[in-house]
């Protein structure tokens, strides 16, 4: 087991238990979230309604008329102790166009960090990320593994909505978006891939815990892939990890 100590049990009301492995963004804590998530899903404990893995905790929604808190905490302790370590089993390679048309903040980010825009692209597309959690809106995928050199503070003010598919950085993390929304993060590119699409058999692409890499593409390739993605095709590639 990872050595981040015993989990802390917190209540989010009488029908949700938060199993917290840390209070910071920490890959070791996230590993334990994933291990417990997988183990809880496998054992199908009666009364457990839904599991929500986040960066540092697992939220367990439960029916307190079926399983009470004490029994749930006991079960989780046992399951957690026995849970096998998990590691990513697949990697998504997601096309990303860093052209300033889409990465409209890339120059500003580069200026803040004292590097060239090309260096920002090289760092961002050279890193291997992990899907840490989904949040905010369907398919908004928060990524751990952003290179330290790309750490920028949030915008001072919220900017107007970015297009769907925008790739952003901020708060020490990466983000793939699915809906046009106002944001305090920085826009550095755009993917033609849809992380969430009701027009496709596979509604959501990556699972929490999957590895993510970005492959730079030019504007022409973006538009070609975007047309294919719009027809419901998956344009990212997925490989099984050894």
């Amino acid at each position: 087991m990872a050595s981040v100590g015993e989990p802390i049990f917190l209540d989010a009301g009488e029908a949700a238990l938060v199993v917290e492995f840390g209070r910071t963004v920490d890959p070791a804590a996230h590993n334990r979230v994933l291990s417990l998530d997988a183990a809880m899903a496998a054992c199908e404990l009666p009364g457990v309604v839904e599991l929500v893995p986040t960066i540092r905790s697992l939220m367990i929604h439960y029916d307190p008329l079926v399983i009470d808190r004490t029994a749930l905490v006991d079960a989780v302790r046992n399951i957690e102790t026995a849970a096998a370590d998990t590691r990513p089993v697949r990697r998504w390679t997601i096309p990303c166009c860093y052209d300033p048309t889409f990465g409209e903040d890339i120059t500003q980010v580069a200026d803040q960090l004292g590097m060239t825009p090309e260096r920002v692209v090289a760092l961002h597309s050279g890193a291997t990320y992990r899907a840490y959690m989904y949040g905010f809106l369907p398919g908004f995928c928060y990524l751990g593994g952003l290179p330290k050199e790309l750490t920028v503070s949030r915008r001072v003010t919220i900017r107007p909505p970015h297009p769907s598919g925008t790739i952003m950085i901020g708060a020490g993390m990466g983000l793939i978006t699915t809906f046009a929304m106002p944001t305090g993060w920085w826009l550095i590119g755009r993917t033609p891939e849809r992380m969430f699409s009701l027009a496709r058999e596979q509604t959501f692409l990556a699972a929490v815990g999957d590895e993510i890499k970005f492959e730079p593409i030019d504007l022409e390739a973006f538009h070609a892939l975007d047309r294919r993605a719009e027809r419901g095709e998956v344009v990212a590639t997925v490989t099984a990890l050894p």
């Binding site: 029908a15 929500v52 540092r56 929604h61």
Partner: peptide
């Protein structure tokens, strides 16, 4: 805090110290 899950009924306190109760259409984290 580092984002975590939100349930209906969660009373979240914003940076300016103003509380809000998250209801049916809340965001999930």
């Amino acid at each position: 805090i580092v984002s975590d899950g939100i349930v209906m009924g969660a009373i979240q306190v914003l940076g300016d110290g103003r509380p809000m109760v998250l209801m049916a259409d809340r965001q999930v984290t």
